[in-house]
Every structure is written in C-alpha cells, then in structure tokens.
Amino acid sequence: MIRDITIGQYYQTDSVMHRLDPRVKLLGTLLFIVALFMYKNPAGYIIAIVFLFSVIKLSGVPVKFITRGLKGILMILMITVLINLFLTPGTAIVTLGKVSITYEGVGMAFTMMLRLIMLIMGSSIVTLTTTPNNLTDGLEKGLGFLKVFHVPVGDVAMMMSIALRFIPILMEETDRIMKAQLARGADFESGNLVKKAKSLVPVLVPLFVSAFRRAGDLAMAMEARCYRGGDGRTKMKPLIYKRRDIIAYIILFLFVIVSVWVGRWSVISGFFNDLYLRFLLN
C-alpha cells in the first residue's frame, strides 16, 4: 500500500518538465488545483484534461506510472463519491430507504471524482519530475518572503529534504525488522484490525529507536561539516529563471485564464446543463 503512493517518488529521465524551475512547477500545481475547483461546466475540465495530458506527454513519464499513484487514494475516492452520491439534496432518481440518489448527486459525485483524480495526477507530475532536493529548494526560495516574519524557511527546507532522503532507508529498515520478527514467529497477517495494529508494535519500537540513533548520528555529521542553520549558506545549484521558465509561466497563466473563463462562462454552462437534463430525462 505504501509503495503505491507515487507522491514523493522521482522518475529519472531527461525532459523539459524535469529541467523547469521547481518554483514554476509548484506555482503551476497550486494554480491548476485552484482552477479545478472553479470550473462550472465540462468545457473547463476538457481544457484541463488536455493540458494535463500535454504536460504528462512533455514530462516523458509513462502514464502508467502516474495512474499507479491513484491506487493509494482509492478509498478516499470511493468515500467521496458515495457521500456525494447519497447526500446531495435534489431531485431523486432512486430511493433506498432513507437516502436517495439525486440528479445533482450524480453530477456532483462525478465532478468530485474527476477533480480528485486530476489533482493527484497533477501533483504527482511535479514530484515525479523534480528531485526532492530541487523541490525543497523551490519551496525555500518560493517561500523566502516568510523570513520577514521570522519563519526559519531554510531550516524547514533542510528538515524536509533530510526526511525525504531517509524515507527509503527507513522503509528498508522496516522491511528488515519485519522479517526479523517474522523469523521469530511474529504474525502480521491474521486477526482483526486492532490485533493487526497491535502486532505492529514490535516493529515500530525498534524502528523508532533506530531512527533516533540515526538522527543523532546525522546531526553530528552535519555539525562536523559546519552546518549552522540556513543563514550564510551558499548554493551549489542556485535557482535562476531561464527563458523556458518564463515561457512556462506564460503558458500556465494563459491556461488558467482561458480554462477558468470558459469553465465559468454562463452560455456554455447553460448549454451543458440542458444537455445533461435532456440526457437524464430520456
């Protein structure tokens, strides 16, 4: 299950998307998500889907890789769909006891599902094409203005990048501890949820102990290499906007403006509403 989540995994290849400045990609994701929640008619989503798939194509990451990330949110997706399907008030199509599926509910459920899927796909594109370090650099620089409010942006960015670096190491360790416990007769498979959760205690305790030991070692190694907080550091790979980043910004803003305008244009919304109603009445 943990392995299915694509967020935080980097797909190594060389593409325009990989070379883009992380700040462009981060702002792009943010705007993309905001735009997704502003559309009122399918035209907006169609533009967004075309945009999303062009970006995927440009990134050189196989679509299979991106859709794999959806497995992790399958539960959330199903719950959202069910809640929207049954709990949206409106004209009922089917009634099951006290709850009923409504026309509005079907539309709402479909829209939410689409939004969530596109949201996950859009954000995994960023993490798949940006090294975690690059990503934290982007966050550090992009949120640099917070330093005025005494937010230690540099230190937080360093913490994030260290956390990301240790994810695979700790996963490996978890695996090792689980195997060691299995060899001693531990049982992680059978029983109900509570029993399963309890059986993980002998895995978590050594994992935490070792994580703390690692943290101590790492802190010492960092001090030995003269790390003294974010201030006064220079960058090996400073972020500098290039021509392609400017072009990407222009495309991004064009996309947002056009898709939101089309997606909220009352003429188109009305047209699709008619179509939808006619389809349901037949």
């Binding site: 090294t131 975690p132 370090n133 990048s161 260290i162 990301l164 670096r165 190491i169 690692r214 070692d217 790492l218 010492m220 190694a221 960092m222 030995a224 290499r225």
Partner: peptide
C-alpha cells in the same frame, strides 16, 4: 570527519 555508518552521514540525495 568521516564516521562509521555511511548511511547516517550522507545528507544529499
């Protein structure tokens, strides 16, 4: 300084 455990002293990705 170079320490004993190689995993616990590499900071970069």
């Amino acid at each position: 300084m170079v320490f004993q455990n190689p995993d616990n002293q590499i900071i970069g990705q």
